[in-house]
Design a protein around this nucleic acid. Structure first.
Lengths: 339, 339
DNA sequence: CTGAAAGCGCTTACAG
DNA sequence: CTGAAAGCGCTTACAG
């Protein structure tokens, strides 16, 4: 068993105090006016002994752990695992490590994760907030814990957040369907007050209005997170199983809704895009394999991850006190399902 | 800003030493023979003040951080994000938090993650090892760091590992193709010496031999991790673009290979399963949407995650010194692509 | 230019 | 049954 090398081992070997070693190894040689010769010597010995600082001890003393907490709805959802990957990459570039947790869109799990992460003294949090968790975020703000929201937020803008322009993305998606001649466009979204869904619905409505199509609230179906597969199936039955289908096109507001819907539509006799136009949201390996390759709204995940970490860094380093609302572009990838 | 409640705040309020409080809150009231009354009082005050222990301080003192490090090849690969999710769940059940990193199958990244995690004093590691990382694992063993390998291992069994019976799973997959009348079965796997691929190839060969089919090494193509998409396309050209196709069925050894292959096959005129039988490995949202729903080998991810964490717990708690090689079942999910 | 010392917030032998 | 005290491995004002 190789014994762990400590600061004092280096100090002993060089014949100085641990303070000197600490200063040098933390790049504060100048601040502490340590001699060049000495600094060089210390660095050399540290390297020779392969010194690895105990980050726990450093964290306890300095109050900074160089750790970020990331709370997503479900790390096994490809959208979030992609996001996590890019956040991990960017955090690493800044010398930070990421702890990840899945909230399952549940308030209590979200709170439990926040508590765990705070007890671990994370320097900041990146959170895809759960519906109704505004209090949890407020509490973090009161404690002056740096927080950046991703993917969604609450309606007011008094928060740090990074996300796409959901309204515009949806607007363009629905506009595309309208341009391609579809008249009765339905939408399936999650039933939540969170900003991303609200804005996706708003963009849908805006596109219709701008084309002079009256918004029919019955064509907007909201499914519940806990029973979304069944709810999606039910919505499709509602839309399509009448004698005369209520819609000739659908805008599906997330990847999970889209996958469920595509599975169901696969089993129906209705043909995409001839009888049913489709635009989905987010990416999925499945989209290209649907018999009519799917048109979808693609979020720039690398940018979202990068911006979120960079914004958090700025807050942690106290370079900003402003609330920042950072919007990242989204593009429509046109397949065949949109006509 | 709500001030953080410390052990000594409780001690002061109750009028005892921090030692007592620590014992009681850590469930060691009996060991330390603390009075029942006192214990109750301490717990009550802790709850009232909403005491949250500083896990960093505890970690420094106790040497145990209740943190696990997880190193996967790529957290954005659905296989690993699923695995991560189940590991996260099971770790949480044991009161542990998980730090995740992606090695990209690269030795240097793997080493860097190991270093980072050790500097953060993780209590143990779960690793999907990179090719050639045997030294890294050996070094961890020498330092007596608890380690459990997942998904793959090295050929010798002197390690703790949790994975499926890759040989048998592949054997059954190829056997199915043979039973369905395919004669010339090719295989695409990764070019690696790691156990999982070796065993998948071994199972493939065994199935052929048992049916009296001679193994033709030319029908086993090995693709490189860094250029696998192109390599898979090239392999398919090799297999199928001759005047007379070299194979009438394919066994695809991972989800990423399968997705790439399915995309390419989608663009060819050859029909699945009539002219080309297929069995893939792992799950993907895409499998069900391929025009001929895919037959695949399904790994029991929840079990793998659970077993890996439980084995690691046993090692951390020193309940075992034996090397354990834990094999989890895998099943074939029969679709239409296998004939 | 360098060192002695306090302290981060806990845990845990030890003494009584 | 309970408390005083040492110590985990660092960082950082402070003194010289």
């Amino acid at each position: 068993m190789t014994k762990k090398v400590l600061l004092k081992d280096i100090a002993k070997e060089v014949g100085v105090s641990t303070a000197l070693v600490s200063y040098v190894l933390n790049g504060k040689a100048k601040e502490a006016r340590v001699g060049d010769e000495m600094a060089k010597k210390i660095k050399k010995v540290a390297k020779k002994l392969n010194y690895q600082p105990n980050l726990i001890a450093r964290g306890l003393k300095s109050g900074r752990t160089k750790t970020l907490g990331l709370i997503v709805a479900d790390i096994s959802n490809p959208f979030f695992s992609m996001l996590a990957r890019f956040i991990e990459n960017e955090a690493d570039r800044h010398g930070y490590t990421v702890i990840i947790g899945s909230s399952d869109e549940k308030l209590d799990k979200s709170q439990k994760l926040i508590d765990t992460f705070l007890n671990r003294q994370v320097d900041g949090l990146i959170i895809a907030p759960v519906e109704g968790s505004r209090n949890q975020i407020n509490a973090l703000n009161r404690m002056h814990i740096p927080v950046v929201l991703v993917d969604r937020s609450f309606s007011d803008k008094d928060l740090n957040a990074v996300m796409i322009d959901n309204r515009n993305a949806s607007f363009k998606a629905v506009q595309l369907l309208l341009e391609n001649g579809y008249k009765k466009i339905g939408m399936i979204s999650y039933d939540t007050s969170l900003s991303h869904m609200q804005n996706r619905v708003a963009g849908y409505k805006e596109a219709l209005r701008e084309s002079g199509v009256e918004v029919n609230e019955k064509l907007i179906r909201k499914v519940s997170y806990d029973s979304f597969t069944n709810d999606v199936f039910g919505s499709l039955d509602y839309f399509l199983k009448a004698k005369k289908p209520l819609v000739d096109a659908l805008f599906l507001a997330t990847n999970s809704i889209s996958i469920a819907a595509l599975k169901y539509i696969n089993g129906l006799s209705i043909k995409v895009p001839e009888k049913l136009g489709l635009v989905c949201f987010d990416e999925s390996e499945a989209y290209d394999f649907f018999y009519s390759p799917v048109t979808y709204v693609k979020q720039e995940m690398p940018l979202i991850g990068e911006k979120a970490v960079n914004l958090l860094m700025k807050i942690i380093e106290q370079k900003t006190n402003n609330r920042e609302w950072c919007v990242v572009p989204a593009n429509i990838i046109v397949g065949e399902s949109s006509g």
